[in-house]
Design a protein around this nucleic acid. Structure first.
Length: 565
RNA sequence: GCGCCCGUAGCUCAGAUGGAUAGAGCAACGGACUUCUAAUCCGUGGGUCGCAGGUUCGAAUCCUGCCGGGCGUACCA
């Protein structure tokens, strides 16, 4: 399908150049990279171009006249004649293209032939991308918002990889600073309390109950000697334990990071000093009120930002600058960060610092993943972090399962807040989109079982073994065309950094399959397994390609593809 | 006040580079089970794309203003 689009696009472009020459007008096609689009309405063919409408002014000719000229030239193209059934002018000046059935069969053949490589594309070849996501503070368990970020980041990484980018999944561990000290103090207080000493958790500290469990473990290990330990000991222990739990929960959730990057190492390796002098050198820092400021207003920020306080302690922002500079120094050419909505105000200053250090603005992208509203029985589930009670990632997963959780979290545009219906996600019915797609996969396997019962050899459903030309029903052709869109969906996701197109596509594809399957109920000649063995084999080849795409698509989402349900 | 995001059917949401009559699912109503899984499918109704201007042959999409909602506006991480 992609090659067909390219072929059509080139043909249209060439024809337009010829027409421009004949009309003696200057025509530069570079601003328009793509002349071919896919009409929403099937009646408008498989592809269309709006070039005549767009170029009417430049060519000083009526759109329909340009369309006529264009049409003539395209029709005389022998290589296009082999793939197109119909070329027609429609409406105010559209040109609609319809594919020959044999072209559609070629698409299926190509899908079967390429197997798991079908969706690979080279659109991002050569990009070395560092994708940082989740990066939740190691001061407690991961919550539902982190669960969304984790799913989004993981799936995005898989998609970028499929577009030939070199992707590194990274978790930034904030194991340094004031919050860490508070965590240590809070844990120590819990230990003391358990040993009947009087101790208060700092007001700004961590009051969550998980620290009590941690304290119990410590006491089991060290007994009364626990009280002798330093605050640093408690802090280190709490961080290490929390990070281990986060890793465990993420593993359950099928999210694996290539690297857990410790903030501490930024400080230990003097990276802050290096970056401060670099920024000083390029005149982006100044002193005021005994503090060191970064001139972020030069880069569109509302205010300049403090990077070193008057007590000499650098701010978190300064560490973050050093961290991001370090990413570039590790050889990454493109940085993508996934943040929560509460951090969007932070973008201009960090983007500014990155530019101040000499990196192109476009090399750094922040994706803001909007909030999650958990809904149960139509009522929002309250999430209050302050009281130390919040819905944990692990709670969501154990409630609805990893498959549904991941599917639901990536189903919506990251720009939009997400209403996560826990009841819906648990349902084993078609109302649940995750189930619906998985069910299509299982159903194909059940058809295989049936085929085996009838002693049809399905071990070798390759194109050479099936006469694909027998597939002539409109729904079959439509199904193949839909499958043909798979690579461009992957490419679109990678290009726009928008992953929700994939679950939507899989849903549509599954829907078309269920429709196709049901046709056979009223029209026995459309049953996949029928009297005619040759036709049956062709149809088995068709659903085999479909199975591969659904399986591959679900794998990209990190969702399982059951063979029976 | 300023900044970012959102506003599309009763509800939850899609609508890529502006294109043809704005689409799904849920909910409502009506149909299809001697089956390759009815765990599914088909049909019907449902819209001032928040409002008002503007750009354009053409706007849900781009621009300006306004209205409504969320989030943010730290020398916290």
């Amino acid at each position: 399908m992609n090659t067909i689009i390219t072929q059509l696009n080139d043909a249209v472009k060439n024809a337009l150049r010829n027409i421009a020459d004949a009309l003696s007008v200057q025509f530069d096609d570079t601003p328009i990279s793509d002349f071919i689009e896919m009409p929403k309405d099937k009646n408008h063919g498989d592809f269309a171009t709006t070039a005549p409408l767009k170029l009417a002014k430049l060519f000083k000719k009526a759109p329909r006249d340009i369309a006529a000229l264009l049409c003539d030239r395209i029709k005389s193209d022998a290589s296009l004649a082999k793939i197109l059934k119909k070329i027609e002018i429609a409406g105010p000046g559209f040109i609609n293209f319809s594919l020959l059935d044999s072209t559609v069969h070629d698409i299926l053949q190509s899908i079967l032939h390429q197997g798991q490589n079908y969706s690979r594309n080279s659109s991002l070849l050569g990009q070395k991308i560092l994708l940082e996501f989740v990066s939740a503070n190691p001061t407690g368990p991961l919550n539902a918002v982190s669960a969304r970020a984790a799913a989004v980041g993981d799936v995005l990484a898989s998609l970028l990889h499929r577009c030939a980018a070199d992707v590194h999944r990274e978790f930034y561990v904030n194991d340094f600073g004031n919050q860490v000290n508070l965590l240590g103090k809070s844990l120590k207080a819990r230990c003391l309390q358990l040993l009947n000493h009087s101790a208060d958790i700092p007001a700004e500290g961590y009051h969550g109950e998980y620290l009590i469990d941690m304290a119990k473990d410590l006491i089991l290990k060290y007994g009364h000697a626990t009280t002798d330990k330093s605050e640093d000991f408690f802090a280190d222990y709490a961080i290490a334990t929390n990070v281990a739990h986060q890793k465990r929960d993420l593993t359950n959730y099928r999210v694996a990071f290539d690297e857990w990057f410790s903030e501490k190492t930024i400080h230990q390796n003097n990276l802050l000093e290096q970056n401060i002098s670099a920024l000083k050198k390029s005149n982006h820092l100044y002193e005021k009120e005994e503090k060191l400021w970064f001139r972020s207003t030069d880069f569109g920020d509302e205010l300049d930002r403090v990077v070193v306080r008057d007590n000499g302690i650098p701010t978190y922002f300064m560490a973050d600058i050093a961290y991001h500079q370090n990413k570039y120094e590790r050889g990454y050419t493109r940085l993508i960060d996934i943040w929560g909505p509460d951090h969007h105000g932070y973008i201009p200053r960090l983007s500014g610092a990155i530019q101040a250090l000499g990196h192109p603005k476009e090399s750094f992208t922040v994706l803001i993943v909007q909030q999650v509203n958990l809904v149960k029985d139509g009522v929002p589930v309250k999430m209050s972090k302050r009281a130390g009670k919040f819905v944990l990632m692990d709670d969501v997963i154990s409630e609805v399962g990893t498959d549904a959780a991941r599917f639901f979290f990536v189903m919506r545009s990251t720009d939009s807040p997400l209403d996560f219906d826990l009841e819906l996600a648990k349902k084993q019915t078609a109302d649940n989109p995750c189930f619906y797609v998985q069910y299509a996969h299982a159903r194909i396997h059940s058809i295989y079982d049936k085929a085996r019962e009838q002693c049809i050899d399905i071990s070798n459903l390759n194109p050479s073994d099936a006469n694909l030309a027998l597939l002539t029903d409109p729904t079959e052709l439509e199904l193949i065309k839909k499958m043909g869109q798979f690579p461009s969906i992957i490419e679109l996701c990678g290009k726009l950094l928008e992953i929700h197109h994939l679950p939507y596509y899989l849903y549509d594809l599954a829907s078309l399959f269920h429709l196709y399957f049901n046709l056979g109920k009223e029209q026995p000649h459309l049953r996949i397994i029928g009297e005619n063995t040759e036709l049956t084999k062709s149809r088995l080849a068709l659903i085999s390609a479909l199975k591969n795409i659904i399986q591959d698509g679900l794998a990209l989402l990190g969702v399982s593809a059951p063979t029976s349900m």
